[in-house]
Design a protein around this nucleic acid. Sequence first.
DNA 1: CCAGACGTTGTT
DNA 2: GTCTGG
DNA 3: CCAGACGTTGTT
DNA 4: GTCTGG
Length: 231
Amino acid sequence: MCGRFTLRTSGEQLASFFLAASMDIAFPSFKARYNIAPSQIIATVRWSIEEKKAEFAPMRWGLIPSWAKDAKIGYKMINARSETLGEKPSFRAALKRRRCLIPVDGFYEWLTDGKLKRPFFIRRPGDRPMVFAGIWEQWNDLSGAIESTTIITCAANQFMTDLHERMPVILEPSQFHDWLVDPKDIEKADWSSFFKAVPDEYLERHEVAPIVNSPKNEVPDCIVESNGFLF
DNA sequence: CCAGACGTTGTT
DNA sequence: GTCTGG
DNA sequence: CCAGACGTTGTT
DNA sequence: GTCTGG
């Protein structure tokens, strides 16, 4: 689940959005994205221990564990189950020390109808931005360092359930700071208050044209309804 | 001890 | 069928 | 997530 | 890196 999303909100708008959550973050300007796929560089926010503040950090989507011999393993690590990531060798170190926020303004899910893949676009009413919970990792080889990230998932709410059994963990602004900053006793940390599905009314969905199916199609038409209408 | 896995989702 | 690339 | 490739040798 | 399995 959650293997494609959009980020059309500008850097300036994102800065305002985070400022409303008392986080003063400088975002670069970037092109609107309509079809972000795994392995691509995405915008995240993490805690800078040196500066004691939240900061923008670009990362590759698909977490590469620090011990990996081959970065390709990251293609499989685009999501992490909230129920188990504390125990998984690939994720547990990142959960303790490297949590992040992933701003998005919509994501895609597919229904399979025989050979047909029917894409749906899911967003907030009013097209407001939202924030996925993520963790990140650093990986080094001879050619340099790669910072990569993964989206945490939880059981789907009623709204999502006919599209998927799982959905991304979406955080409220009141949770941003506590998610990023290490608790005093990391060994006793309890993350369960974060790992919850949003209420059913939080999201709306639109069936869209299958042009979005190919990650090569990075165009506004990805969020035009399948019947040709804008929404 | 060394070798091998380490993940999620969806589908069957 | 399975892996890689975007 | 979906789409697209999946191979070697020899010749141009 | 760390754990599991043989």
